[in-house]
Each structure stands twice: as C-alpha cells, then as structure tokens.
Amino acid sequence: MNRVRRLLLASTLTVTTLITSSASADIAIVVNAGSGIDQLTRSDAVNIFMGRYRKLPTGNVALPVDSSSLKARFYRALVNKDLAEINSYWARLVFSGEASPPQQIASSDDVHQLVIQNMNALSYVDGANVPDDMHVVLMLGE
C-alpha cells in the first residue's frame, strides 16, 4: 500500500513538473552558432530589439528578427509589455524617422533559415526547443 502511494505521489510530481515546465518554458535569444557571440546581457538585447543601439559584441550591425508566433511572449518576457504597447513605442520612432522595428517573419522555419544564413541575425525560439545549429546568447525567464 505504501509502495503504491509512493508511486502515485512520484508520478503526480513528475506530471506536475512536466506541465509547469512546458507552460513556463523560457524564451531563448539565439544567433548563428558560428557568429562568435557567446552571450548578451539583457540590456544588450533591449538595445538591439528596441532599436536603441544595434551593435553586436563582434562590432557588426545587429539584424534582429521578430518571429510572429512567439512575438507576444518574447516582448512580455523582455520588457513586460504587450504588442499594443510595443506598436505604440515603434510608432514614435518610425514616424520620427529614428529607427525601424525588427524584420517580421511569420514562419519559424524561415526565422531558422535566416539565422543559419546570417552571422549578424538574432531571433528567439522557445527555450525547450532550441535547434542544434543555433546558439543561445540569453535565456529570458517567463
């Protein structure tokens, strides 16, 4: 009886852990594995994705790419804002000719392709499914 109870408890715990981890999977900011960029700080990521200062540690110009399916989660994790607030932020910069928002890409396969082909491209993927040929430079907790 004790064994059964222990087993039940263990399996419940495992299931709970699995559910929590998939529901709160982190967002990984990724670059090309050969880009030479080891990691970025959160303020580097804010500077690049929010158009404040787009210089990579390698000295090259950063090319940030928004992945449409993860965009809402990403900006919530990065700056605690929803998409209407992000659009409002960009409206000021776009219509005063200061900066342009990241390139928007709808399909995650296309995001993957772009990052694989461009040494200066940055994007984000679900932290639980980082492809082998991408390198994580920053993990954002959700």
Binding site: N87, Y89, R92
Partner: peptide, 19 residues
C-alpha cells in the same frame, strides 16, 4: 526635411497612437 526635435516627443507630436 526633418521634424523639429526641439524637445522630447516634439518631432512625433502628431502621432497620437504613440502616446
């Protein structure tokens, strides 16, 4: 031709969606 960026927001003061 450039918006007059004389103080913060002055060059985007007609972009209502931004504020």
């Amino acid at each position: 031709r450039l918006g007059w960026d004389v103080y913060q927001l002055s060059d985007s003061r007609y972009v209502g969606y931004a504020y």
